[in-house]
Structures are given as structure tokens and as C-alpha cells.
Design a protein around this nucleic acid. Structure first.
Lengths: 193, 193
DNA sequence: GAATAACTAGGACAAGTGTCCTAGTTTCGT
DNA sequence: ACGAAACTAGGACACTTGTCCTAGTTATTC
């Protein structure tokens, strides 16, 4: 692995800081301190703060795409692949209880700030939606696939918000168990109605 | 109705601005402009910005309590009362698509800011949780009442986040219909297992 | 009606913001 | 080895931030 470029390091540190403290509340000074460079030097790498946000969103999209691809390779069946998505809530439970879902909270913040990048941030959620739709379709529910995908995505967003508010790990585990039961019952639901 | 005091007017305007633009991004100048008073005059009414936040949270708690009480008086059965909660998503759909859930987004923001008032904001969610728990208990599910209440609250939070991100009114209506079906199926679930 | 309190506008204050410039230093292609 | 490009630190810039002071005005109380 080659030495990380300053450019990449800035995006990486900004990514973490935006997640932990929010985009608006994170200043150039914060990022510069985290990277270990001078504040003025920033201009050479990024003209504006929005450029950093763009880069961070791009990084998140790329990593999300890679993660979804990996789940495709690992999971034997669509059901197992969907379980990989669900288990993110368990694997990242500590961070979720501290800072919420990285994607959901960013979308919410950018919406309130009326920021132009809001649509790009939503595209990350769109990646999950489309991937889950694909898996649902493979599961044998072609007509309701997107509806089911949006429902599952919504479910996980709700769990993240509640977990952040109440700092309740048992709640996360309980809801994840509920999602798993729901997933198991899906074929039945497909046949009914 | 007596003329609204300046104090109350400040809290009211700050409440709306915090909801629409977020707490951190809303400045004293913004609130002063909305109220129509000078910026410096603020100090006489509120010593710090955190004091305004405290007042706003207090106002929201009071109004939430009143709303929940009203739903108790209006709804004949616990099921109808829970439906009042659910239909908030429909009634406030426009604002939710623009700014999300007032409570959920505030909790998320204050958590990221590591703000001392985060626990007080969570108390508002706690009001909903306790009220829903009470209704669930009355519905005939005493042992799982709080679990069901948290699940419903989580569900609505997820819908709010997704609706904000995708600006999709059809999704809201679809999920609300799903919640209604879930609510109808509840007694059966109580008897099983 | 005088004294006290409540309220107001305007501005000062230091600190922090995003942005941008200048002047050096290092690295790299040739 | 040399010129160009990449990179760096430090600081200036205009502006906004939350906070606080002063000096007036209005309202209330006895």
C-alpha cells in the first residue's frame, strides 16, 4: 500500500469529522488540526469547504459501492446478502449510538442547511435502495421489490435515530431480530394478496 | 387571548427556525430578524443561546404533552389514539419532507454537537414512548407494551428520515398504510408465542 | 407623581469563520 | 542540473458569531 497522499488524508479526516460533529460545525481549522497541516495550506488542495464535502460524499459513495459489491460476493443467497446489510446495525452499533447513521444524518443536515449537495448525499441512500431492490427481486418479489427495499432502508434509519437518542443497545438488537423475522416471513407475504 | 409577550414570541420564532435550519446554523441575528427586535436586546430576555434552546425544548415538551392529552380525549379506543399518532406523518407530510421530524433531527444534531441539552431533547421522544406504551398496554399487550411502543416510534422516525431524503409523499402514505396494517394485526401477535 | 423595574436600540468586544495571497521549500521530469 | 510544478506555512481579509455594556425609553408600583 503506497503512502497516503495529503489529499486523501484530508478527505478521510474530514469524513470522520463530518460524521462525528456534523458538516456545518466542522471547521477548516478542525480538519487541518486532524490532518496536521496549516490552515492556510488548505486552499491548495480544496478551493472551498463545499469541495471537501463533495470529495467526502464521493468517497462515501465509492466505499458504499465497494461494500455492496463485497456483500454480493460473500452472500450465497439474496437472503444472506440482505442479512449483511441488516447486521451493519450490530457491527457499527457503538458509532451509531454516538453519532447516528452517517448517511441519514448527513442528508438531514444538508436538507436543513438547504445545501446544494443534498441530492448527492441522497444518492448514497439510493445506492442502498437500488442494491436492496435487486436483492428483493432475486428473492422472488419482483413487483414489490422496491417497496420492500425502501421499507427495510427506512426501518434501519429509524433504528439508527432511536439508538442515537436513547443510547440503547438492547433496542438495536431487538429491532435487528425483528427485521430478521420479517425477512424470513417475506416469501409468505409475497404469496398472500 | 392576551397579546403575546416578546419572550414567548422569541421562543416561538426560535422554535421554527431551529426546526427549519437547525440549532447551530440559526444565529441570534436570524431570530432577532424574525421577531423584529434588535440583536443586542436579546441579552435582556435570554442570557445565552443555550437558554433559548432550553426554552424551545420546554415549549415543545409542553405542546407535546398537550397534544398527547388531546389525543387521549379524542380517541375512543387505544387503537384510535395510536392512529392519531400515526396520522401525524400524513398531516405534517409537507414539513417532514422539507425538514424531517422536529424531535428526531434535534436529537441527532445535539448528539453530534455533544450538547448538554441532548438528554432534555430525548425526553420529548420519551413522552411519545411513554404515551404509546400506555396505549399499547391498554390494547392488551402488557408485557411487550414498551417494546411495541419503541418499535412504532422507530418506524415513524425512519419514515421521516427517508421522506426528507427522497421527498417522496407516496412513500409516506405507503408506510403509514403498512403501520395501520401492523396495528390491526397486533392482537394476533399478542396471542402467539 | 416620583421611584423602580422592564424593556429597548445600538454598538463594542474578542474569537472564530471561509477564503485567499504571498513567499518560501521540496519534489519531479527532462 | 535546471526549470517547472507541487506543496507548505503564516498570515491578511472581510465577515459573522455569541456575549455583554451603556444609555435611553416605557411601564408599573406605591
Amino acid at each position: 500500500m503506497p503512502a497516503q497522499s495529503t489529499h486523501e488524508l484530508i478527505v478521510e479526516k474530514a469524513d470522520a469529522l463530518f460524521y462525528e460533529g456534523g458538516f456545518d460545525a466542522t471547521s477548516f481549522a478542525d480538519i487541518a488540526a486532524a490532518v496536521g497541516i496549516s490552515r492556510g495550506n488548505f486552499y491548495h488542495h480544496f478551493k472551498t469547504k463545499d469541495d471537501i464535502l463533495d470529495a467526502v460524499i464521493g468517497r462515501r459513495m465509492e466505499r458504499t459501492r465497494a461494500m455492496l459489491e463485497a456483500w454480493k460476493a460473500e452472500g450465497e443467497s439474496p437472503r444472506e446478502r440482505i442479512l449483511s446489510f441488516i447486521h451493519m446495525l450490530i457491527a457499527n452499533r457503538t458509532q451509531i449510538m454516538d453519532f447516528g447513521c452517517p448517511v441519514g444524518t448527513l442528508c438531514s443536515e444538508l436538507t436543513k442547511l438547504d445545501h446544494a449537495a443534498q441530492s448527492r448525499a441522497t444518492e448514497i441512500l439510493g445506492l442502498f435502495r437500488d442494491w436492496l431492490t435487486e436483492q428483493m427481486r432475486a428473492l422472488g418479489a419482483p413487483d414489490q421489490a422496491e417497496t420492500l427495499a425502501l421499507h427495510l432502508l427506512s426501518w434501519s434509519q429509524g433504528v439508527a435515530v432511536m439508538a442515537t437518542a436513547f443510547k440503547d443497545e438492547a433496542f438495536i438488537r431487538n429491532e435487528v431480530a425483528g427485521i430478521e423475522r420479517w425477512l424470513s416471513s417475506l416469501p409468505n407475504l409475497t404469496h398472500s394478496t
